[in-house]
Write a protein that binds this DNA or RNA. Structure first.
Length: 268
DNA sequence: TTCCAGGCGTATC
DNA sequence: GATACGCATGGA
C-alpha cells in the first residue's frame, strides 16, 4: 500500500480503483458525487471526502489521520486485495474480460452488515435513485445511518416520512429480529453460505437476492452471487449453463463487473 | 398514460 | 417446486 501524509490528508496511490466505478455502481447508496472527481460519504458514520487527480491513480482522502486510514478506510476500500490479479483470472472468459475492461476500477467495499441488510431491504423492486432518496431521508432523520438499536421504537407508520412503501414493515421486522437476537448478525459472519442465507431470510422481506447482497456487501462473502433482474439477463444471454470456472470463489466480484456492464449497455 | 425498478409474500396448483 | 399476482412510490 503506497501512501503519504499531506497535512490533514492522506495521499494514496492505488491501481484498479476508480471512484465512479466503485462508489456509484449500486453496491453502496450514500456516496454523493460532489464534483467531477470527488465523492462525499460515510462508513459507520465516519465522514469522508475522497477525490482523484483527473484520470490518475492518485487519490486524496480529505481530513483523514493515518490511524483512520490504516484502521478504517484501507479495509473499507479493500486495499489489501489485488484486483489486477482477479481481472487477469476473469479475462479468460470473453464476456467477463469485456466487463472488466469496461469498469476496471470496481472494488468491493467492505460495508457494515446492518447497513447492507437494511439498505438492500429497501432496494427491492426499486430503482437506484429512489433507493438513495429513501436512505438519504433515513440518514438525515437520524443524523447518520441508524443502528438497529437506534430504530428500536420505529413502526411502519413512524417510518412513513421515508416514503419507502411496503418496505417499511420489512425494516421494522429486521430491527425486531436483530434486537431480539433471533437473527445474530455476528454469527452469520462465520456460518456456511447456505446457512447464512437461511438465517438472513428469517426476516420478512429478505429473500435470496437481498440475502446474497447482504452477504456480499455487508459480510464480504465473495462467493455470494446476488441475482437481480439485470444479472438474470446476463445469465440468460451469456451464461445459460452457469458461470465459468474462473469465477470460482469470487462469484460476487464477477457479479459486480457484469452488473455494471449490462446496466450500461444500450438495450440488449 | 403505462411501464419499470439491485424482489418478496402469498395463494394456488 | 413452479407460477401468477399484488405491492408503494416515483422516474422515464
Amino acid at each position: 500500500m503506497q501512501y503519504d501524509i499531506d497535512g490533514n490528508d492522506i495521499l494514496l496511490r492505488q491501481s484498479d480503483f476508480a471512484l465512479d466505478d466503485t462508489l456509484d455502481c449500486g453496491q453502496a447508496f450514500r456516496w454523493e458525487k460532489i464534483s467531477e472527481n470527488a465523492y462525499r460519504g460515510a462508513f459507520l458514520n465516519r465522514q469522508l471526502t475522497v477525490s482523484c487527480e483527473n484520470g490518475s491513480d492518485l487519490f486524496r482522502l480529505h481530513g483523514t489521520t493515518e490511524e483512520d486510514f490504516l484502521g478504517v478506510w484501507a479495509d473499507y476500500f479493500d486495499l489489501g486485495t489485488d484486483y489486477g490479479e482477479i481481472k487477469r483470472r476473469f479475462s479468460e472468459d470473453e464476456t467477463l474480460s469485456k466487463a472488466c475492461a469496461f469498469a476496471g476500477g470496481i472494488r468491493l467495499l467492505r460495508q457494515d452488515s446492518w447497513e447492507a441488510l437494511s439498505s438492500f431491504i429497501i432496494s427491492q423492486n426499486n430503482n437506484i435513485p429512489r433507493i438513495k432518496g429513501i436512505i438519504g431521508r433515513l440518514c438525515s432523520h437520524y443524523n447518520g445511518y441508524p443502528s438497529a438499536e437506534d430504530m428500536r421504537d420505529e413502526t411502519a407508520d413512524s417510518l412513513g416520512y421515508l416514503r419507502s412503501g411496503f418496505r417499511a414493515k420489512y425494516l421494522v421486522d429486521a430491527v425486531s429480529k436483530v434486537l431480539s437476537g433471533e437473527l445474530d448478525l455476528e454469527s452469520v459472519r462465520t456460518l456456511p453460505l447456505d446457512d447464512a442465507r437461511n438465517a438472513l431470510m428469517k426476516i420478512k422481506g429478505v429473500g435470496p437476492k437481498v440475502a446474497d447482497c447482504t452477504l456480499l456487501f455487508g459480510f464480504y462473502r465473495l462467493d455470494a452471487f446476488p441475482k437481480d433482474v439485470w444479472v438474470k439477463r446476463v445469465l440468460a444471454q451469456w451464461y445459460p449453463n452457469g458461470l465459468p470456472d474462473c469465477t470460482k470463489g469470487l462469484e460476487g466480484i464477477a457479479q459486480q463487473y457484469l452488473f455494471h456492464y449490462i446496466r450500461t449497455q444500450p438495450s440488449i
